[in-house]
Amino acid sequence: MTQTYSWHTESVRFSLLGVTEGAKVSWHSITGKEAESMTNRPAQQLVIEEGPFEDGRLVVTSQPGRIDITLSAMPSDPFSPPSLGVFDEVTQSFERRLSGVKMPGVARLAFGATLSTFPGSLENSNKLFKVLVPQIQIDPSVSDLMLQFNRPKKLPKVSGVVMNRLTKWAQLVSQTIQYHNNVALNPINKHVIQLELDLNSHPESKLPSPSAYGPLIAAFFTEARGLVAGSENG
């Protein structure tokens, strides 16, 4: 089957897990600017810095044991899917930003992303899902499906760290309802195939010192781009 499609990059995320108490990665250290807003909740030891960045919104969330750096697409039209742009370009830019940040010592590192494509019909969705996930046979009548795979991979060039490579596939139907004068207009249904990536260092893998995180961070982004490119090639 030959079918053209394109991924909409909804979000990308880089996470530091098992962060030592008091460790921090600031919004300013990533962007070179001050955040638009900051939320500080001392009781929960939670700090959220956010603001517009490039073609999306960058949010840095710091909480006990974890820091998440997330870039998400901002919706501009309720009937058009939000997108940061081409995944390869988005992740290369995101990677360059992170490579210049001084990272704290952590127990694990992780990368996440959410992408969507819109086949146009249930028939096309079923056909495309079979191309993207050929290991699974699906009944043509199925319209809502979720599958998750983990394919661990050893990184011999990065201290032998083992990377968990989780890919979560979803085939579903989204519905958009617009209201006019408090009256609901006819809903618009869209068939969606969604891909969620969750790449993380195995809990038993010992990471190098923070000063040597560069090659490991690059490995996460390279692997993510390879997985998406592989799906695009069927």
Rank of each mutant, 00 (worst) to 15 (best):
V12C: 12
L17G: 03
G18L: 06
S26A: 04
G32N: 07
E36Y: 10
S37W: 13
S37T: 13
T39D: 07
I48F: 03
P52E: 11
D55V: 05
G56F: 00
R57Y: 07
V59G: 01
V60E: 09
S62Y: 01
G65R: 01
T70W: 00
S72W: 00
S72E: 14
M74N: 11
M74V: 15
F79A: 06
D88K: 06
E89L: 08
T91W: 03
S93P: 00
P104M: 06
P104G: 05
G105A: 15
F111T: 02
L115N: 03
F118N: 05
P119T: 03
N126L: 07
N126G: 14
L128Y: 12
P134A: 07
V142Q: 11
S143W: 05
D144S: 09
L145K: 07
F149M: 14
F149D: 04
R151C: 01
K153W: 04
K154P: 00
K157S: 13
S159C: 02
G160N: 06
N164A: 04
L166V: 15
H180T: 15
V183A: 13
V192T: 14
L195P: 02
L195G: 03
L197K: 08
D198H: 14
L199I: 13
N200L: 03
N200Y: 12
H202E: 11
K206D: 09
L207P: 02
P210T: 13
I217R: 14
I217W: 08
I217Y: 02
I217T: 09
T222R: 10
T222Y: 03
E232A: 07
E232Y: 01
